[in-house]
């Protein structure tokens, strides 16, 4: 689908329908929606630098425990795994607007991988079927970020 903000709803609805059909726990679905929305919005806003371009969303079953979602675009190379975490402790005045989207992607998925494949960015998210916790440690995330 074209990388346009008015397609965001279509992407999220298709994804949610698929996750539901696959039996994902209902409280887990908004977390996946969040990770995917943030990734899509980054692509829509920045990847094509004002030019037209497409986004491809692929969903599949990785193994007994996990789903895999891949998001592909042909925009400028961008590795979300390497971005620093925002400071989430500071006050309203000090708190920066922005930077949270990538943080949510990193927090909502079990494993996040980025690769450049030809002229495409490929972001791969592994998500467990029923895990409803936000308990993944920061060291785990760092390990994936370096992968």
């Amino acid at each position: 689908m074209p990388a346009k903000m008015n397609n965001l709803g279509n992407f999220i609805q298709s994804l949610s329908r698929w996750l539901k059909q696959q039996g994902m726990a209902s409280e887990q679905i908004p977390r996946v929606q969040l990770a995917v929305e943030e990734a899509l919005v980054n692509i829509i806003r920045y990847a094509y630098e004002g030019q037209a371009g497409d986004i491809e969303l692929r969903c599949g079953i990785a193994d007994d425990q996990r789903f895999v979602i891949e998001i592909l675009d042909s925009g400028v190379p961008f590795d979300v795994c390497t971005l620093p975490k925002p400071d989430i402790q500071c006050s309203i005045k000090e708190r920066k607007i922005g930077g949270l989207g990538v943080f949510f992607i990193q927090r909502m998925v079990d494993e996040l991988l980025y690769r450049r494949e030809g002229d495409k960015n490929v972001l791969t998210m592994f998500i467990s079927r029923n895990d409803g916790r936000f308990s993944r440690s920061s060291s785990n995330q760092d390990m994936h970020a370096g992968a």
Partner: peptide
């Protein structure tokens, strides 16, 4: 409200 993403949080912060 059932769902909020970073765009929503940014609006509240702004």
């Amino acid at each position: 409200l059932e769902y909020i993403s970073s765009a929503g949080l940014q609006s509240i912060l702004a």
